[in-house]
Nucleic acid binder design. Structure first.
Length: 119
DNA sequence: AACTTGACGAGGG
DNA sequence: CCCCTCGCCAAGT
């Protein structure tokens, strides 16, 4: 399995393309969904080579922060793109995953207690 | 084949 | 909240 294999990379991109604007997913979350020997690191490795119009900005780390701060990309470019989609970041550059994290159909968390929302 | 890096994650101080 | 350590998998030298 090689990150350059189209099938390998496509599985990651397929999920990322499914993230709607204003929502985010974490590297580790994507790795868990793919299962097959993927880890947060490999997903990140695949993501840094995203080119197919994949909304890479919607993939952040498990802390709710952008991992692109000190890298090739200008500081807060990713955060700025997400803010344009409505994601609110704290002064420390962190967003609330409990609010913005996207869960693909079939991989939703256990929490179904929305019945208590409005009594 | 060995060693280092890297858009990561969890745990501890 | 910041910093460090260790585990993880693939790529580049």
């Amino acid at each position: 399995m090689n990150v350059n294999d189209k099938t390998y990379r496509e599985r990651v991109f397929e999920i990322v393309r499914g993230i709607p604007a204003g929502k985010v997913m974490t590297y580790g979350q994507i790795a868990i969904i793919l299962g097959e020997g993927y880890t947060a690191r490999t997903v990140g490795y695949v993501m840094h080579g995203a080119e197919d119009g994949v909304p890479w900005q919607r993939v952040i780390n498990s802390q709710g922060k952008c991992s692109t701060d000190k890298l090739t990309l200008p500081h807060s470019l990713q955060q700025g793109m997400l803010e344009s989609e409505g994601v609110i970041f704290s002064a420390a550059g962190k967003c609330d995953l409990g609010v913005y994290q996207w869960h693909p159909a079939g991989f939703e968390p256990e929490s179904d207690d929305q019945t208590t929302l409005f009594g």
